[in-house]
Design a protein around this nucleic acid. Structure first.
Lengths: 352, 352
DNA sequence: TTGTAGGCGTTATCAG
DNA sequence: CTGATAACGCCTACAA
């Protein structure tokens, strides 16, 4: 839509510089050395290790740097050191809201620690993912893989070259950040039991904590049945609606919120009333989970924490010069989940 | 997907390689020059310019490169050329679904053209945005600003140093990609008029095409009133519900889908029936716009196209396909919008 | 504490 | 067409 035109439109003028030359871009340590009357190497020291230079010289240099509006050239720095101050984040699907918070958490934490985030998407393909990972290897100090699709061996192979942190999956020998589903699931199951349900269905996407559901149901004396969905998407949820009805369950737990939403839509379209006739509980608490009517009850998974946690882990690995690979067991960080009770679950009505 | 001759096979024979500090060091053009029996500079030529070397030598070099699993070092390359093959994308809010598709469109197009995307978020703050932009300037060949918050002058200043493309806002002198709202809006208004509405409210966020709405309403003989929302969010939508009711309008157009969703929630909570008593039309068709009940009618804005279009524009600028001459007005690319008719708009019921 | 010199991997400029 | 050789901007022993 039309933005208000600024009055000084005519003043705009100068077009972007031709990319052919690096040009007069920014000052170098040589320029600032000249201004400060010292040697370039001294400037280098002053600007990286704030201890190896006299206070007087330090100030001199810092002033000159400020004067010239100096900024390090990350590429020049990367060449001798190999450190790029950059890390890569590869997600399976950028438009899947599950990853939004992960991305944000990672980006925020990275920026805070003066790192740059480069993002790539695997489009749910293991091949694409591997390609992206290989591409990145050259330019990043470390890699975060969110819900990776490639197999464990490939991940470990990559982790042998550069520090890697995996989100949302456990890979032996590689540090991982995974939500601990048990707390949230048992809360969900308890809530359902308290509302008079006797049989719950669990719609699984890729394998996930069926055991947890079973255990929780057993504890609460509920019958549990397991259903499969082809895809962890809204569409997948719609498709599984038949199976859900056939199962005779009065409550459903799904692998993720997208499934739950699709399922709810389909069930409602078929005339069922949620939660009077059937309760639905999702997983993740993605953005938009409360757009539905009724809003979705879901097991919240702190995705943002996963993102920032993974980044912190990675940065610590980098900073601690902790070489990956042999020996030590890779730490896996567990973040807690919890039930978010909204309208899509509740007491079964007598007629149901 | 079997990798042809992985270096691991050979490497596993002698795994005792000294772990150089930067991790695994890949082959350089010197290595491949040695293998191919030519000069490093010839290798460089062969690998960048396809024409400047004899076919025989070319093949020799390419074979050696494949053998050694060579990959250019982007940092070494960036030093003499200034080209980083990277561009930055700054968005106002990563968790705002408006940007998801933009990000994906940009990422996809960039990867296709062998560019790397680095992402930053401004958290809706002009200052943060400016900081992020400055940071990026050092490392990218160009910048995409999606719904920037900083003022035009700052944007133009940045655009003076590196190619910049702006999405979702028009800045004089800078190439922009903006949705052309008129088609979608007039479709929406016509649809409302056809359904018997007489008075529509427009909830504006940041200034956006009130004129378009006015014109379309005039055309369809509808009364139009303009309302303001403090924030373009779900919450903002809730807060504006009062004003909407007070306005006496029977249909509402909102600046974006988030507003529409919040508004609908609040209206429904107050007992109003959508669309029987009031029609709601959003803008953008974000992910999740169809999660609501009824699903949201909205003016679809091809966000993905905006992202890829902006990227293409930027890449073309970079490649000098079209260097903006001093006098030339910066091109602004308009992408069409269209009405997506869903359940939240429709005929007013007699009792309404 | 500070200066000197060499190198990181590529590209670009000259000669040959 | 190809081979030397000098940048590119910064870091880091090694001296002074």
């Amino acid at each position: 839509m039309t933005e208000p035109k600024t009055p000084d439109a005519a003043a705009s003028a100068a077009p972007a510089k031709k990319p052919s030359r690096a040009g007069k871009s920014s000052a170098t340590i040589y320029d600032i050395a000249k201004v400060a009357g010292v040697n370039p190497s001294t400037v280098s020291r002053a600007l990286s290790k704030p201890g190896r230079v006299s206070a007087k010289t330090q100030k001199l240099i810092e002033d000159a740097a400020a004067e010239l509006n100096y900024q390090v050239n990350p590429f020049a720095r990367a060449l001798p050191t190999g450190r790029t101050n950059t890390f890569g984040l590869i997600v399976a699907d950028i438009t899947n809201p599950t990853f939004f918070d992960i991305i944000r958490g990672a980006e925020t934490t990275a920026t805070l620690r003066d790192y740059t985030l480069v993002l790539a998407e695997s489009a749910e393909s293991a091949d694409t993912e591997l390609t992206a990972a290989r591409r990145m290897m050259a330019t990043v100090d470390g890699l975060i893989l969110a819900s990776p699709r490639m197999d464990d061996d490939n991940i470990r192979a990559i982790a042998r070259d550069k520090p890697v942190v995996v989100i949302n999956r456990e890979v032996d020998g590689v540090p991982c950040v995974v939500p601990d589903v048990n707390k949230g699931i048992s809360e969900a199951v308890r809530s359902l039991a308290a509302n008079g349900h006797h049989k719950v269905a669990f719609v699984a996407g890729p394998p996930r904590s069926w055991e947890g559901v079973q255990a929780a149901c057993e504890w609460s004396r509920l019958e549990a049945v397991r259903l499969e969905s082809s895809k962890p998407t809204v569409d997948g949820g719609r498709q599984v609606a038949r199976d859900v009805r056939a199962s005779g369950a009065t409550a459903v737990l799904t692998y993720n919120d997208l499934l739950a939403i699709g399922l709810m839509q389909e069930l409602q379209a078929a005339g069922m009333v949620v939660p009077d006739q059937i309760s639905i509980v999702g997983f993740d608490d993605i953005f938009g989970a409360d757009f539905t009517t009724p809003p979705l009850t879901t097991v919240r998974s702190p995705l943002g924490e996963c993102g920032s946690g993974a980044t912190t882990l990675l940065l610590d690995l980098l900073h601690g010069d902790h070489l990956p690979g042999a020996g030590e067991p890779a730490a896996t960080l567990r973040v807690e989940t919890e039930l978010v009770l909204r309208g899509s679950s509740g007491r079964l009505l007598p007629g149901g």
